[in-house]
């Protein structure tokens, strides 16, 4: 109930309006280029300290949305507001500030972690990029971030290759947390992990969210996973959000036929249990 009141009263941290992204398809010499609409008219807002999950199948435009919000890609039209500031025409002095505030965590961190660096160096890298602190100070902060994600500081000097899949994802999370962001975009961050490890990670994410007052945008194709982490769920299909409501509402009373299909296709023990 407390969560409900929170949802209703506070100003949203992130607000997206009419977001569209079109790609020109076809080879560079082709005369006829056709437009692919990856996102069309996406609208949502996320309250501080809450989680919005965006679910959909491959090609629904989820990743494009994540990339637009993380400013890795320029939307074709629409508005993105963060703490009352428009991200799309931000004065250059604010850009660095936003880069610290919004962090992105991808699926399969293996490719995103430089194997030549040690774990602690990887986590400290954003600090280096933003030119923060002395070397000792940075190491200290990186180790703290590792501890927050449940990685023992003793492992700080190991190579990321020595970590298991779940531990690598913790490392990627520590790296995202080290700058003290407010908004995390988790793009399929737990996909490909075992169910038992996924559950550990979900608990960790909820824990960190509570202690550090974080806001999450959780992007996934896995509705079962999302059910445990999100306050609200937006179902995406072919570039548009077809249904958006509170999580319990979505599972108890799915309106859209597609949402019903998605819920029905969650593997369950069903009649056996």
């Amino acid at each position: 109930m407390v969560a409900d009141i929170k949802l209703q009263t506070e100003e949203p941290l992130v607000r997206v309006r009419g977001l569209s992204k079109r790609y020109a398809q076809g080879h560079w010499f082709a005369r006829k280029k056709y437009l692919i609409e990856a996102l069309s008219g996406v609208e949502f807002s996320i309250r501080p300290r809450s989680t919005l999950a965006v679910v959909g199948e491959s090609g629904a435009g989820k990743s494009t949305l994540a990339r637009c919000l993380a400013r890795l890609e320029e939307p074709s039209s629409g508005e993105i507001w963060y703490e009352g500031k428009s991200l799309l025409d931000l004065p250059s002095k604010d850009r660095l500030w936003v880069r610290r505030q919004i962090q992105l965590v991808f699926q399969d961190p293996t490719s995103a972690l430089n194997p030549r660096l040690s774990a602690v160096e990887i986590v400290a890298e954003p600090l280096v990029i933003h030119g923060e602190g002395s070397k000792v100070d940075r190491r200290e902060r990186a180790l703290t971030a590792m501890e927050q994600t449940g990685l023992s500081p003793q492992w700080g000097d190991k190579s990321p290759l020595e970590f298991s899949g779940g531990q690598r994802q913790r490392l990627a999370l520590a790296r995202a947390l080290v700058l003290g962001p407010k908004f995390l975009i988790l793009d399929e961050a737990l996909a490909g992990l075992d169910l038992s490890i996924q559950a550990q990670m979900v608990n960790l994410l909820l824990d960190i969210q509570a202690t550090q007052a974080l806001t999450y945008l959780y992007i996934s194709h896995d509705l079962a996973l999302v059910s445990n982490i999100a306050d609200e769920v937006a179902v995406m299909r072919e570039g548009t959000i077809i249904e958006r409501c509170r999580t319990s509402e979505l599972f108890n009373n799915p309106r859209h036929l597609y949402t019903q299909q998605l819920i029905a296709s969650i593997p369950r023990l069903g009649s056996h249990a």
């Binding site: 550990q200 979900v202 999580t247 108890n252 593997p267 369950r268 023990l269």
Partner: peptide, 23 residues
């Protein structure tokens, strides 16, 4: 760790998920 809808198919959010600790 498997997702369940709960009794009578009603969904109730679980704030702490059962998991197997460690790796």
């Amino acid at each position: 760790c498997v997702f369940e809808l709960g009794d009578e198919g009603a969904f109730r959010p679980r704030r702490v998920l059962p998991s197997i600790p460690g790796n």
